[in-house]
Write a protein that binds this DNA or RNA. Structure first.
Length: 203
DNA sequence: TGCCAGGCCCTCTTTAGGGCCTT
């Protein structure tokens, strides 16, 4: 596996799309990968202090009854930022998860030091021929086994981790790059789609 | 009261608009 970095791949379920509009996290799931292997997992529901909509109950399968017994966001996020440590971070459509992570951590005055990379932006460059770049579609496109339920935090983070590794494997095989650091992927995401082939050939 | 995201990326572009992705 052409991956030497330690990475945390994470996914939030939330009450809506925008923390700026008052939406909160209701579940965090994450895996840590070292040398391409999952070495640690994190999953917790959290109580946002408000009822979630029928749409979110239906979309995630997380119910108000389940959240009633969950610890508050502040308690879970305090544990989660310890889990992250100093590792770099990946999420599918990372701008979404980063907004919620930053918002929830602002509330408890905590910070992380790692950098975010987005598996969706990477996939738009590496799997340009995919029908679309939704997580579920890409998992199928990359022939990744998926027997669980999407839209739960741990499962989606596990699938995102597998997608990330499938993209590294694809780059490794096509361009004969045998070690793909996080930095390469960050630079790849910053490369225009049309220039990706040239960028990887010259790496 | 009632409204309600935001960043990326393409194109019939850059003095803009709209689809894609996330919940």
């Amino acid at each position: 596996m052409p991956l030497a970095d330690t990475l945390v791949i994470l996914d939030f379920e939330t009450t809506g799309l925008s923390p700026d509009m008052g939406d909160r996290a209701i579940e965090i799931g994450a895996v840590r990968i070292e040398n391409g292997v999952v070495v640690e997992k994190f999953q917790e529901l959290m109580n946002p202090g408000e009822h979630i909509s029928p749409f979110i109950e239906d979309y995630t399968g997380i119910t108000n009854a389940m959240l009633a017994d969950a610890p508050p966001c502040e308690e879970v996020m305090d544990k989660f930022v310890d889990f992250i440590g100093d590792d770099n971070l990946i999420a599918h459509n990372a701008s979404f998860d980063k907004r919620f992570l930053d918002s929830e951590l602002d509330r408890i005055s905590r910070r992380y030091t790692g950098k975010f990379a987005c598996s969706m932006l990477a996939a738009r460059r590496i799997f340009q021929q995919a029908p679309n770049h939704k997580l579920g579609t890409l998992v199928e496109y990359a022939n990744i086994d998926s027997k669980g339920t999407f839209h739960r935090a741990l499962y989606d983070s596990e699938m995102t981790a597998k997608l990330w590794m499938a993209m590294l494997e694809d780059i490794s095989q096509r361009y004969k790059i045998y070690e793909i650091p996080f930095l390469l992927m960050v630079k790849l995401i910053g490369t225009p789609k049309k220039s990706v082939h040239q960028f990887l050939r010259r790496w």
